[in-house]
Design a protein around this nucleic acid. Structure first.
Lengths: 205, 205
DNA sequence: TACCTTACCTATCGATGATAGGTAAGTCAA
DNA sequence: TTGACTTACCTATCATCGATAGGTAAGGTA
């Protein structure tokens, strides 16, 4: 139960519960700060505790394990991503809408390498999102799925390809040219190329 | 100096030197075994030493640090990859040759997830290949580069795209369907699609 | 034989994530 | 207001990790 937080506090009075959740938020925010400084795997519970003015064992009052902390960060990152995607004004044209949506997705992903490591790579040994947190990631993927569908692409294999292409460009960008655009500048062209090809193929069959 | 092995043994007599290198090879092989069992980041020096019949500090006679061990594994993996690629009989047709070469590359990459993590991902916190080892990785990339060139594709941006697409498919394959072919089956089609498009564009300009 | 190097060993270090058990402050019903 | 209970921390300690120091017996060499 990675995602489970310490004990069950659902019987707590609201006031106490809110204070507690606020503290969790502070801890997660500090964890992101440390992750940005030392990489996602470089977050140490001792350093994190010091950052929030505690001793290391006290963190276990808020998270059952270090992996549970990562799970909370995973959920937090995906929630922020969904918020950002909510703000995207989607044009009528499905193709333009898809590209605009993907551009925002990619911008979010690339702006914080440590967050990218946790949300989209598997750079934390042993970490797998809990079902509760994974639902958020599926929501993101579901929105991409929907927009791709609206361009007329419905086959799972074609959706897989587009997702893989986007991921490949992002991964190359962050690995070899973080902050630049050497790979990511090809995103729109590749999406157009692939979508055109699928539609062309479906027309001729 | 990540890649440096303990001290400088270049003044050793040949007999001793060979025995030493044989031992290094045994250690690296055992490390791969542990990596396959527990993931690349799950290799512990205590377990590795036990595996080769030593105590943990004795490994430091062969490697200056754990990262130096990873560097030796990185070089070893790339050497094996080059050996495999040497065996590929390349057809005349540049396009067919590229696809056959990439197929072998991908087959090698996917057959051992732990090796993939070390060679193609950055799943080991703090690890960067030493210049000496990185030369081997560049040799691999150089061969891909050459074959892509021979299809008539010369612009760096286009080469980047093909490499990113291949990497994206491999990464999705291993993350979501290891052992299967849900993503990788699209490799040839995507390469053809991209190469065709580049050649088409160059013809119309 | 005498000497030097090799190839290990034990003991120990600091940092890590995790657990056990204690205490003072906060909360709340009688 | 008091007394009981809970919360929110603490100190002390553990096993495991990579790493270092220093010792020793066997192998190789003059």
């Amino acid at each position: 139960m990675i995602g489970k937080q310490a004990s069950d506090h659902r019987l707590m009075p609201d006031r106490v519960m809110q204070r507690r959740e606020a503290k969790v938020a502070v801890i997660v925010e500090s964890a992101w700060k440390l992750a940005r400084e030392h990489g996602i795997a470089g977050v140490s519970l001792h350093a994190l505790a010091r950052e929030v003015g505690m001793r290391q064992p006290s963190l276990y009052a808020y998270f059952d394990s270090k992996l549970a902390l990562y799970d909370a960060m995973f959920a937090d990152g995906n929630r922020r991503l969904l918020q950002r995607l909510d703000l995207v004004k989607l044009p009528r044209d499905p193709r333009v809408a898809l590209k605009k949506f993907l551009a925002e997705f990619v911008a979010f992903a690339l702006e914080d390498p440590a967050r990218y490591e946790l949300l989209f790579e598997r750079h934390v040994p042993g970490f797998t999102p809990s079902p509760t947190s994974y639902v958020l990631a599926e929501e993101v993927l579901g929105r991409v799925h929907k927009l791709i569908n609206e361009t007329g692409i419905t086959k799972q294999g074609d959706i897989d390809c587009i997702v893989a292409i986007v991921a490949g460009l992002m991964e190359a960008q962050l690995s070899n040219d973080p902050g630049g655009n050497r790979w990511i500048r090809h995103l729109n062209r590749l999406v157009d190329l692939y979508v055109d090809d699928v539609l062309e193929r479906s027309r001729h069959s």
